[in-house]
């Protein structure tokens, strides 16, 4: 009889779930909201600020061309190359800045950790697909643009289940 009750319990649980709320996120139509603006670095404490590790953003006026980000990336993905930029900043004597190949980047964020001048942050833009390999290489000029993202879905937990509203 234990078998019979077990079977009935299982069937009951299955039928019950037909009516429960589902939290499927219909991705291109709705996007999940993330914490903050992305993985950044807090100069005051020296510790990162939580956030999604999306594509980078480069502050041209902070970058000194020290190559530390490139060195940090060497052991990981070799995604960062230092390229010449035409307009030289005052503090950037060599006038080289990172150019990131997102075909190689693993979004670990070690370059952000490595940057002593807080010039490299990460943003919460993760839709980077392109039709060509060249399209994935972001030049310093492209990296300087702050991406516009609309992400507003958040998980909501109710008694009838979790749902993405």
């Amino acid at each position: 009889m234990g078998t019979a009750t077990g079977i009935i319990k299982a069937l009951n649980s299955g039928i019950k779930h037909i009516a429960i709320k589902r939290f499927t996120l219909r991705y291109p139509e709705e996007k999940l909201k993330f914490v903050g603006d992305g993985y950044q670095f807090d100069p005051s404490t020296g510790v990162g600020i939580a956030g999604i590790k999306g594509r980078h953003m480069l502050f041209h006026d902070h970058c000194t061309g020290c190559q530390l980000c490139s060195i940090a990336c060497e052991g990981v993905a070799e995604a960062i190359a230092m390229v010449k930029v035409p307009d030289s900043q005052t503090q950037n004597k060599k006038s080289i800045m990172p150019q990131i190949d997102y075909g190689k980047c693993v979004f670990c964020g070690l370059c952000v950790d490595a940057c002593p001048f807080y010039a490299l942050y990460m943003t919460n833009d993760y839709e980077l697909s392109s039709f060509s390999k060249e399209g994935l290489i972001y030049t310093p000029a492209q990296l300087a643009v702050k991406p516009y993202v609309q992400q507003d879905s958040e998980i909501q937990i109710t008694d009838r289940g979790a749902t993405h509203g």
Binding site: I18, I20, R22, T24, G161
Partner: peptide
């Protein structure tokens, strides 16, 4: 459809 509903899918 029913299996999807049961398994919390769409």
């Amino acid at each position: 459809k029913m299996l999807a509903k049961l398994q919390l899918r769409v």
